[in-house]
Write a protein that binds this DNA or RNA. Structure first.
Lengths: 129, 129
DNA sequence: ATAAAGTCTATACTTGGTATAGAGTCAACG
DNA sequence: CGTTGACTCTATACCAAGTATAGACTTTAT
């Protein structure tokens, strides 16, 4: 399988696949006689795993940690639980931040309507305070 | 006033102030004989304005738009209202995305507890699906 | 044989800063 | 007057997570 096929199958772009490889997320890959990357089913699974993690907003470092764990099947998975718990707590904190932001913006938006001049704009005056 | 004083007064770092200048947010500044940047009260106000906008998560481009508007006091402020409304709607969309993310993560976290091996980790198995 | 499509590497760009290196400036102290 | 220390200058590189090119090479199809 060549990189174009992999891109179609996984939905990752060609550049992204090469980018993940450079970041160390796709180990030990072979090259054809013409120096083309050669992929197998395993790589596709790995890419889908990465995609799944990324869709959950995990960083590449986090994904790498998870993938490294997979190669040590007899170890405890407590660090994985911890990683996910930390990630979840980060998301919750971010939601709270954004909710406060939303209130501020709504408050500010209410200070003005469309039909004023810049000079009298309630939003700009609010920001200028 | 030199850049260090401005940094202390505004709470922006020295590098950040120079960065904003390079981005065109701090116009027409003077230099001392020794080529030091010289600031006045106006610049401080401008920096606080930028800081306020950034604390509302506006992009530098958005801030620039607002600052450019301030120099045309007789124009309508409708584009400012539009800018803020768009920004608010982006924030709301992001909150919704993060709430879905949170549900997914909670669901995934519930698939496992701390005391399993990597092989049997409910989280990894969930992600691998 | 040649043209088109695919792939290769290397590099630059994005956002909003942060962090150096190496050089120059300024004030104070002896 | 010299020199030390604090401050500032420019230029450059770095972060995340890709995206987008240029220019060269390989493979495929006609």
């Amino acid at each position: 399988m060549k990189i174009g096929d992999v891109a179609k199958t996984t939905g990752c772009s060609i550049q992204t696949i090469r980018f993940y490889e450079k970041k160390g997320l796709l180990p030990e890959l072979k090259r054809s006689s013409g120096n083309y990357r050669v992929y197998d089913k395993g790589t596709i699974e790995q890419l889908l795993f990465i995609k799944q993690c990324r869709s959950l907003d995990m960083s590449i470092t986090e994904v790498k940690t998870l993938m490294d764990s997979r190669s040590k099947p007899d170890q405890s998975c407590s660090n994985i639980n911890t990683l996910i718990a930390k990630h979840l707590s980060d998301v919750i904190i971010r939601i709270e931040e954004l909710n406060e932001l939303k209130s501020s913006l709504e408050n500010m938006a209410s200070k003005c309507d469309q039909d004023k001049t810049i000079r009298d704009c309630g939003i700009l005056n609010y920001l200028h305070t």
